[in-house]
Structures are given as C-alpha cells and as structure tokens.
Design a protein around this nucleic acid. Structure first.
Lengths: 268, 268
DNA sequence: CAGTGGTCTAGACCACATC
DNA sequence: ATGTGGTCTAGACCACTGA
C-alpha cells in the first residue's frame, strides 16, 4: 500500500485529508463527511473499546495523538473533551487522560441515585450477595436483555442498608454472552461494586443506564427482606445498563422502602 | 473615569487584561483570577438574567461580543458554548444564539420525564386547572420554597391524561415573592405549560429542577382524581424548580398511577 | 449577498504532575 | 526539567441563513 517507516494510525483508518499530508498522501474520509474531530472521537472510542488502553490506563498525550492522526492539537483536544463530557475518560492537568474506571477514587457509585431521606448518600452498604445463581429469565428480564424468554442468566441479589435497616433490594441480571459464568464469579467474590467487577473480570465498562421508576405493592419476599408488610407501597427501579459499545449488559430491578430512602434526580 | 467614545462592556465590568488593550487600559479582574471565558460566561448570564435579551431573543454575534469584551472570538465562543450545554441558550448556524425559551419549537416539555408504559410521551394532555388559589403552605412545601410555615402561596392543581385516563395529578406552588398574584393569573389563563407562563408573565426562566421520588399510598383525594382505590401504591415526585439566578421558584408535588405511566431517567 | 455559527490550524503562555 | 492538560489568540475556510 504505502511506504512509511512508522505506521501511523491515520494510515490504518483513513482519517485526514489528501492535501497537506506530510510526505505521503493520507487516505481521506472525504473532505468533511463528518467533522474530523468526530471521526477522531469515534476512532478513539473504538480503540478504547478494543482494549488498547484498559480502564484506569492513560491515553497518549494530545500532542502524540495529533501527530498520529496528522491533525492539529486543537482538533484532537475537541475529540477528547467530548469523550470526557460523556464520562468515557477523565482528564488531569499535568498527568494525562485516563480511561474511566469504576475504581474507588473516581466517580464513586456514579449511577447510584438513592439517598436517605435526611440527605445522606446510600453507598458502601452492600450486603453479602444473598444469591448468585443461574435462573431462567421471566418475560420482563428477557426483554430487558433482549434474550429469548426462558433463557438462562446469572442473577445476583443483594440488599443495601441504612442505619442497619434494610432499605433496598437489588436483583441484578447479567447478559450471559458478555458475562459468562457470572453466577460462579460473583458467588466467590467479596461484596462490592458490580460495575467494578464487570470491569476487572470481563473488561466491560458500563457507561450509560436507563432507569424506569414505578410504585407498586411489595411482594411477600420483598416485604420480608425490607421488613415491611406485604403490599406496602414500594418504589421499583428498573435499570438497563449499557456498555461502551452500546450493548445491553445488565438488567436490574431494585425495590426500596421509600419511608427511609428516595431516588433523586437533578436535571438542567 | 475614562474617555472612550463607545462605552464598552469591558469598561463597565472589568473583564480583560491591562496589557494589550487597544487605546486605553481596561480594568482587569486580575490576570487569571478565573479563566477569562468563565468571567465572560458569568457576565453574560447576569446580562440575560437582567433581561437585556429576553427568552427567545437573539444575543449579539460572537464577533460583536468579542469586540465588546476585547477578547478573541474563541474565548467568547467557549463561554457561549458552556451556556448552550447548560441549556441557557441555543445556537443555530446561520441565524444566531438565542436565549432559551419554553416556547413550543425548542425543548418541548424539557423537564417532563413521564412516559406511558408503551413508551409514548405524556405531553400536551394538561387538564384545565382544577384549582388556582391561595393556600397556607404546609411544612413540606414551606421547606421546599424556603418560606415560613403557614405563609400564603399560590397553588395550582391540574391533571394529565393518557388515552382519556387520568394518570398524573400535579400540585404546583409558586414562590409568592417571585410570582405575585399567581393564583389570579393562572385562574384566568388557558391550560398549558407553567414554565412558559412564568417566562411570559414574570420573565422567570426555570433552568434546573431537582426531583425526589418515593412510593406511598394514595390519599382519598388523589385516589379519586386518578380513579384508584385509596391507599393504592402511587409514585410521588417532589420537584424543586430553580430559576436562572438559582432562586427557588416552584415546589411541585406530582403523583401518578404507575400502572399506566412511569418516570424515566437516562444518565451517562 | 453579508452575516452567522462550526470547524480547523498553529502558534503562545500557564499551572500543575512527576521525576 | 520535562511533559501534561488548560487557556488564549488570530487567523482561515466552510455551510447555512436571511434579506
């Protein structure tokens, strides 16, 4: 194809323009099919997805990427800035740009929107896993994970507490293709962030969740776990969790005792 | 003070730097107290707030603002871009930058997160106002608007329908200092967007809402309006609405029949 | 047609991290 | 001391809008 000493990324994926390339003419994604910074962003996302830099790792600097893609620093910067806004990477002056991780320091419990009624955060109060087993999905969970009803999936059940009171029961189902053997993995694992585990074990990053909230009466089982009477009104949160590649990774059903905690959402 | 023909905004508010000002030395907000683009953003927000450009109106172009502030276009652009991300203005290539409005075309029902269980949007289904009157606030509403318990406020009650079924009852309280005589205003007004009315009548823009969700049993009154049995589980949404200036404008309590609709929230 | 915002470049200086 | 991201400038060209 081409003869260049260091094989630049721009060569591989055809970002750039014919004009003005250094020694050779770079294949162009047509002048302005999409803005260059979007093409770069998409490509960087694909590279993160492919595991070129894992969660918590550092991307090349803006200058290096600008050289790779044969673009100006400003264009690459704009691509990375959008990724940072979307929570895919985080930037730290003097240190670099890092792939987002659910590891402790950054973004603790990023998607957790439950608060005690006194305003305190409900986190770090996970119980041991009550269950971690293989079950046949019901119609609803099957739809949530886009599986055939009756398929086998891993289900993890746990409870969160506040002031030693059980306040939140979570039933988490993981997609069997993306998280094989999950029931075994979680049965052996210490309680803690599910998303951190997905990251460490399956190299899957959950970047977007879609939640639907309803009120209904507690089932007997839920009532028992939450210390309520059956049919007490409870808040149900149905969560669909999506990976970096937009795949449905998780379907979660949480029910909480809203005498003690509530779901909080701020939007602008 | 100074002698310049056209009084520039930079003169009035001291954005800029000593060095490099054109004919005269502009007062400086210290070199780098805050980034210049943030100072510009804050000042532009204050100007919008003061009504220099009303909702739906067009801001000066980037070039004009850059001249006013004696900064480069890129710096002003960054300020405006942040305002756009925060939903304060919207930008339209070839036309200009417009102050956000709750008027029809842009951002229809921007803060409405209720959907029918089949996925359809619940909007444009407001009932006539069932009530628009002056009431004494209870403790909860008083806290929500930061008023003394027992103060008088305007309360507006309305119902939303889906497929001719009542599914959502909203009780909306407006801060009496910011929205005087609201009970009279809304009693005479056609049903429709509350926020549009606040904008048109009081020149108040609601830009941020904070919502807390709980499940509880329906009161007799709520049950009647929703066609449910008393004590049926209902989803309650408590909303605090904030104006552009961060003032608490609205406190709203919505209850819905979650057999038919749900609250949906997506986050990344 | 002139004016708008959107993209892109190529430079500069800064505060901050790390070594 | 070096390299990082953050800010800022001053130009350029483009597509789109409206008169």
């Amino acid at each position: 194809m081409k003869s260049k000493v260091s094989q630049s990324v721009a060569d591989q994926i055809e970002i750039g323009r014919t004009s003005k390339a250094k020694g050779h003419s770079v294949q162009l994604q047509r002048p302005t099919a999409q803005p260059l910074y979007l093409q770069v962003k998409d490509h960087l996302i694909r590279r993160v997805l492919a595991g070129e830099w894992g969660p918590g790792e550092c991307l090349p600097s803006e200058m290096k990427l600008a050289d790779e893609y044969e673009l100006s620093q400003g264009t690459v910067r704009k691509a990375i800035e959008e990724m940072a806004v979307e929570g895919l990477v985080s930037r730290h002056p003097g240190r670099g740009t890092f792939v987002t991780s659910h590891r402790g320091e950054y973004q603790p419990a990023r998607f957790l929107r439950f608060y005690a009624n006194n305003g305190e955060r409900i986190s770090g109060s996970e119980s041991p896993y009550i269950k971690s087993h293989r079950v046949k999905v019901d119609a609803r969970a099957a739809a949530g994970l886009q599986l055939k009803p009756g398929s086998d999936v891993a289900e993890i059940v746990r409870v969160r507490h506040f002031n030693d009171l059980p306040v939140l029961v979570e039933s988490i189902m993981l997609h069997p293709d993306l998280c094989p053997e999950a029931e075994r993995v979680f049965a052996q694992r210490e309680p803690g962030s599910i998303y951190l585990a997905l990251e460490q074990i399956y190299n899957i990053l959950v970047v977007r969740v879609d939640e639907r909230l309803r009120a209904r009466g507690a089932s007997k089982y839920e009532a028992k776990l939450l210390g309520l009477r059956p049919n007490s009104p409870i808040l149900e949160v149905e969560r669909h969790g999506y990976s970096l590649g937009g795949q449905r990774v998780e379907w979660r059903l949480s029910v909480c005792n809203s005498d003690v905690i509530h779901y909080q959402n701020q939007s602008s």
